[in-house]
């Protein structure tokens, strides 16, 4: 078991944390600015509800990446946090009529609360066992939501979630303006993730991912760190789930079903793990593809998305972002030699 684990983490390490791949601060600031521009411009080019889906799934993928790419934990039950927050957000918004950002924050907090016992039990195991424990919890929540029909609406879902926003009507009715009202929550989630991985806490996570035994020998309480990052990740997934449910105006069992957990892992791997950038990129690809295929009149959507996934995994093992970053690094190292001579 432990031999297998080190082997898998080895691959991930190679992809993400080789020292010479760190970009200089100017480039990073430039990239960040560009990303922000793309995100801000998105609803001008893409149908606004679809744009909202992209950023929500992107943030959801970031929450997975935090665990998978930076801590080496594969959660196969993240739909539990995304879905719970979707329902809780919806219930708060419907019953109290509070502005939607408050409802979403409430949803995220509840997602974090249920992540505490889940994380507490799950982090005692690693690898496939960790994945199975998280999956089991997610299934449990799925069945609870299915049975608690007075609260969740069961099969029919929780319908008619309002987009209350301090009485500003354009935001409440037009998805174009709603996008900009909800975007800060997404950016908040992304910022928390970035802050987490680039702090000393994040360094400890990397140490745990690469060699848990050594991290423990150095005096770090590995389990506690894992629980903490698990809860943070659940909170980010909760933010994303809340935005998603308010944007659609409903929460359904689809949000809790295990395929949703699978889809977000797929998105993360597609985009490239251990990068944070990869998630949103993967989300853009998957959501746009689903959206396009849905009105293309083509009858085998699963075949297309499946083959693309297989192709990416076989040909670009580091995901889209990982591959692009690699190419850039190669160009860079080619350009470096003459550059030094000049200087």
């Amino acid at each position: 078991m432990s031999a297998q684990l080190t082997e898998t983490t080895h691959v991930e390490t190679a992809a993400s944390s080789a020292p010479d791949r760190r970009l200089n601060p100017f480039v990073r600031a430039g990239l960040l600015l560009l990303a922000l521009l793309v995100v801000l411009a998105l609803p001008w080019y893409i149908y606004p509800p679809v744009a909202m889906d992209i950023v929500a799934w992107g943030l959801f993928a970031i929450s997975i990446d935090l665990l998978l790419g930076f801590t080496g934990l594969l959660s196969f039950g993240h739909a539990a946090f995304w879905g719970t927050s979707a329902y809780v957000t919806g219930l708060i918004a419907i019953r109290s009529g509070l502005p939607f950002p408050v409802a979403i924050l409430g949803g995220a907090v509840v997602a974090m609360l249920i992540a505490v016992p889940t994380g507490y039990l799950a982090v005692r195991r690693t690898g496939i066992y960790f994945a199975m424990v998280t999956l089991a919890f997610a299934q449990m929540i799925f069945f609870i939501a299915n049975q608690a029909r007075d609260l969740t609406g069961g099969e029919n879902g929780l319908q008619g979630i309002p987009k209350s926003f301090f009485g500003i009507e354009t935001v409440e009715t037009d998805p174009f303006y709603f996008y900009y009202a909800a975007l800060p929550l997404i950016l908040l989630g992304a910022f928390i993730a970035w802050r987490t991985v680039s702090s000393p806490f994040g360094r400890v996570l990397l140490a745990i991912r690469d060699n848990p035994a050594r991290a423990r020998a150095l005096g770090y309480d590995v389990e506690r760190y894992k629980i903490m990052v698990f809860v943070i990740s659940a909170g980010i997934a909760g933010l994303a789930g809340g935005v998603f449910s308010v944007s659609h105006g409903f929460a359904s069992l689809q949000e809790l079903v295990w395929q949703t957990s699978g889809k977000v892992v797929l998105i993360t791997v597609l985009g490239g793990i251990g990068t944070l950038w990869g998630g949103p990129l993967g989300a853009a690809v998957v959501v746009l593809l689903e959206d396009y295929l849905a009105s293309s009149g083509f009858n085998g959507i699963g075949i297309i998305t499946g083959s693309i996934f297989v192709l990416i995994v076989l040909l670009f093992r580091k995901g889209i972002w990982g591959t692009v970053a690699d190419l850039v690094a190669r160009i860079r190292s080619r350009g470096r030699t003459p550059g030094r001579r000049d200087a």
Binding site: V50, D53, P175, H248, F250, Q254, A294, S295
Partner: peptide
């Protein structure tokens, strides 16, 4: 025509579209 794949979220977005 559009394919909602029996998923309520896709049905919702597609209906708006």
């Amino acid at each position: 025509t559009a394919d909602h794949q029996n998923k309520p979220d896709i049905a919702n977005t597609k209906a708006q579209e």
